[in-house]
Write a protein that binds this DNA or RNA. Structure first.
Length: 538
DNA sequence: GTAGGGTTAG
């Protein structure tokens, strides 16, 4: 410890702090200069100019330089200007321990009540996953500004609590704090994750009403929201009206078309994207393209673009690109080729890839290969404490169909207790959160009958129909089309859901032979297609 | 002057 301190001190310039500042500035004079924070550090009553942050540096280097400053001025006082940038660096690096030390120093300096320091601390704890601390901290911030509120929304989104983020937004409005571009983007992100189309539309009209500019960030967030909420045409409308687009805007639209089974249009969009000078497709772009090929059964096109990403753009395929390809080949019935691809890929395959191949084996009814694949999944999961058991569900069903009852029973035991999935539905202007997997429902028998009926209707529609989004139809069914103002959200806890919905959540797990954790209810909306009786129930 | 934002395989 002492050695480290000495060596750090020795490595520092012996000249005055102001001199060290200029030497660093000179060194970087060709790039973005160091941010200058006068009063960042003070010794006695004397103020020194101190530059310690260069945003081009790695977060760890920023933290290191901050520590060097602390060593020099260990008897001095800090101003809030010293803390915010280094806490931002801690956020970027998810560096909890340095963050805690800085928190302690902030308290010692009597600056823990400064809103800049508090907001930076909030963001730091949030990016380190310390949600309890975040909520405690937030409660103790007396004068929250729009940045504080947005940081809190971001914390909710990070911890997979999008409905809470929406509530935070509402509280912010109630507190009389005007939302800005940042908070609107966070709210749109919450809508996207919730599948809350109606709320998203409210946000869109809010943007227009308030005359907020359709910046590239807001535009992209809107497009993403409409895609995730199943309203692809609205997404296209916003996308086409965007004056400025960057690679993320294109990627969002491309991926949206892909997951909606509109692969041909996705490929057309990619063509247009290539025509746009100044836009260079990146690896996310190709995840979107390959996903589109897979969802639309475009095998040859998928192969073509998988090669193109390296040959034309020099992008190395990642595990996600391989995942799309394996899914594409598997769905097309090319099991051997898919298996070969997994075995020969230069990066280690993960359970997602094997799982996708296993689903393909199930679809092709290839028990032999399914067993081989299952073995691989077991090997990968061997070391993990909380293993995903969905592969056993597929195996047990395949064994059941093959009449191998002993093996089926064996697999059933392994399935064990599944964690509860959560989902949300938007009814009117409320966002409702509920959980799935409750087997104790007193109406279960009745539900079962109802589900059979729903499944029959699904079959009558044909499998193809199920691939298409039914958002508009569902919106009507759920009574979503009425808009009310000014406060669009109210979260209902301990929600009762209608028998149909409750049962369908279970059924999805059974039918798709996988554990369903619905992050948004888009898929759920599509699945229901207006067939449930939630509207009457409510 | 310092703090907060959008995309990614099943």
């Amino acid at each position: 410890m002492i050695t480290a301190t000495l060596s750090t001190l020795q490595s520092l310039p012996l000249s005055s702090p102001s001199h060290s500042s200029s030497s660093y500035s000179l060194r970087h004079s060709h790039g973005r200069p160091f941010e200058s924070f006068e009063n960042g550090f003070r010794r006695s009553s004397q103020t020194h100019r101190f530059d310690y942050v260069d945003y081009q540096e790695t977060p760890y280097r920023v933290i290191e330089r901050y520590r060097e400053m602390v060593l020099i001025y260990n008897n001095g006082a800090f101003s809030n200007l010293a803390f915010a940038p280094v806490l931002k660096a801690c956020s970027k690096a998810s560096a909890l321990n340095p963050g805690k030390q800085i928190h302690a120093q902030a308290i010692k300096s009597g600056l823990s009540s400064d809103v800049f320091v508090q907001t930076s601390l909030l963001a730091m704890y949030s990016s380190c996953g310390e949600m309890e601390t975040v909520f405690n901290l937030f409660d103790k911030i007396p004068h929250r500004n729009v940045v504080t509120w947005t940081a809190m929304m971001d914390a909710c989104l990070r911890s997979e609590q999008p409905s809470r983020a929406a509530v935070v937004f509402c509280e912010m409005q109630r507190a009389g704090v005007r939302p800005d571009n940042f908070s609107i983007v966070s709210l749109l992100s919450a809508c996207a994750r919730l599948g809350a189309l109606n709320l998203g539309r409210w946000v869109h009209s809010f943007i227009e009403k308030e005359g907020l500019e359709l910046t590239v960030f807001i535009g992209t967030a809107l497009v993403d929201m409409y895609c995730k909420c199943g309203s692809i045409d609205d997404a296209l409308m916003v996308f086409n009206s965007m004056k400025k687009k960057n690679v993320q805007s294109w990627n969002v639209m491309l991926h949206g078309l892909s997951v909606h089974g509109r692969g041909e249009e996705a490929l057309q969009l990619f063509f247009e994207m290539e025509m746009d000078i100044g836009i260079r497709p990146n690896e996310v772009t190709f995840v979107g393209i390959l996903c589109g090929c897979s969802h639309s059964g475009l095998v040859e096109e998928g192969r073509f673009y998988f090669d193109l990403m390296w040959s034309k753009y020099g992008i190395e395929p990642t595990v996600k690109h391989y995942g799309c390809m394996v899914d594409l080949l598997g769905r097309a019935g090319l099991l051997e080729e898919a298996f070969k691809m997994v075995m020969e890929m230069p990066i280690p395959p993960n359970p997602v890839i094997w799982g996708s191949l296993l689903s393909a084996c199930r679809a092709q009814n290839n028990l032999g290969m399914a067993e081989r694949v299952n073995q691989r999944i077991i090997e990968i999961h061997r070391d993990s404490v909380q293993g995903d058991t969905s592969h056993y569900v597929i195996m047990s069903n395949m064994y059941a169909e093959a009449g191998l009852n002993n093996k089926m029973a064996e697999a059933r035991i392994k399935i064990g207790k599944k964690p509860k999935g959560r989902s949300w539905i938007e009814i009117g202007c409320d966002v409702h959160e509920f959980t799935v997997g409750d087997v104790s429902h007193s109406m279960w028998l009745k539900i079962k009958v109802m589900l059979n009926e729903i499944m029959k209707k699904r079959e009558d529609h044909g499998e193809e129909d199920l691939q298409n989004p039914h958002s508009e139809k569902v919106a009507v069914a759920f009574g979503l089309l009425s808009t009310s103002s000014p406060m669009p959200i109210r979260i209902v806890k301990n929600l009762r859901i209608c028998e149909d919905c409750h049962g369908v959540m279970k059924l999805i797990s059974e039918v798709y032979e996988r554990e369903i954790v619905l992050r948004d209810c888009t898929r759920f909306h599509r699945f229901m297609g207006g067939l449930c009786s939630c509207k009457d129930y409510w």
